[in-house]
């Protein structure tokens, strides 16, 4: 895991030994920037995921692998299906067809809560803190395998008091790390927007996840807090967790991600390391439109017509 601690991701690594799995960021070196490219050590593999809302194909992903131990960003213009894809991966929505695996286990017909217990924990675009519970209670809720959460054991405090104390200690450590320790007695509903984001992330860590999925962690966060949030996300990778996040903030994407997956109109159109993906023609087309830098008065009308007809034919055939 030596490569994990170096910040410079473009640092060329030695050619890996044949037969040895290239883990973490090492595994991403030299991969092609093609959608669906196979990763040496994937934690999540999605195949043929399709989700339709009425006539709208919101998500249609042929193949996608997420490398373990790295920070992967999921970007794309509005309406690209990023959040829907997120919901499909975490079990908050079920795909019409296709399957996804987590650590090699299929997630078919698995409830969101079960997937979370397996170690894939998400946050929400609109933060969901439990307003009328204190910050500390929010944190305690995150701990898994609590004896006191069973009805009969709940009545008998001596059964769960020890475990509760241990959870509380862990919660306090995490709160201190996210600088929320001074707020532990406050109602979560009284926190500011940025503090809620922090609390949600800290609470997700109480589950002890392997894969943390952050849905727009920077939305509505002030620039100062943004820096500290970036640091927290990086520290998750340092702790050996895998991070997948949806984000619109390109600075953040460039700054912390090791790998970028670009979605447009429900499909993965490109993926690759952040420095090269931004200049990928397909990505520019998706964000700005294919003809964004051509002067339309200069276009040959017939050529445009022919192109459009060809496109129509193609659509009819598929």
């Amino acid at each position: 895991m030596a490569a994990e601690t170096t910040q410079d991701q473009t640092n060329p690594t030695d050619a890996p030994d044949a037969g040895q799995v290239r883990t973490g960021r090492e595994g991403l070196v030299g991969l092609e920037n093609e959608p669906g490219v196979a990763k040496p050590d994937p934690i999540v593999v999605a195949t043929g995921i399709m989700r339709q809302f009425g006539g709208l194909k919101a998500v249609d992903v042929d193949h996608l692998e997420i490398q373990r131990g790295v920070i992967t960003a999921l970007i794309g213009p509005n309406g690209a299906g990023k959040t829907t894809f997120f919901n499909l991966l975490t079990g908050f929505d079920t795909p019409d067809s296709g399957d996804r695996t987590f650590n090699g286990r299929s997630l078919k017909r698995m409830s969101a809560s079960r997937i979370a217990r397996m170690g894939m924990v998400r946050t929400f675009q609109l933060t969901k803190v439990l307003s009328k519970l204190t910050v500390l209670e929010n944190m305690r809720l995150g701990a898994t395998g609590q004896i006191g959460e069973r009805f009969w054991a709940g009545v008998l405090p001596f059964l769960w008091r020890g475990q509760e104390a241990a959870n509380t200690e862990r919660a306090r450590d995490l709160l201190a790390r996210f600088k929320l320790d001074a707020k532990e007695g406050d109602f979560a509903g009284s926190l500011s927007g940025g503090q809620r984001k922090l609390l949600e992330m800290a609470r997700a860590l109480m589950v002890e996840p392997e894969l943390v999925m952050l849905d727009e962690p920077m939305a509505g966060v002030n620039p100062a807090l943004k820096q500290s949030l970036l640091g927290h996300v990086k520290s998750l990778r340092e702790d050996g967790m895998t991070v997948l996040f949806v984000e619109h903030d390109m600075d953040m994407v460039r700054d912390i991600s090791d790998w970028v997956v670009v979605m447009a109109a429900g499909r993965v159109i490109a993926e690759g390391p952040p420095d090269s993906i931004m200049s990928d023609q397909r990505v520019i087309d998706a964000y700005l439109g294919a003809h964004h830098d051509t002067d339309i008065t200069q276009l040959d009308a017939e050529a445009v017509m022919a192109e459009a007809e060809a496109e129509l034919r193609e659509e009819e055939q598929s």
Binding site: V121, T123, K128, L130, K132, L141, I147, E149
Partner: peptide
């Protein structure tokens, strides 16, 4: 008890509880 905490959390936001 932690059981009651889960109930109160469900009252506040079901999806958050599910995600945990």
């Amino acid at each position: 008890s932690p059981w009651g905490r889960v109930l109160k959390s469900i009252r506040e936001d079901e999806d958050a509880v599910r995600s945990l």
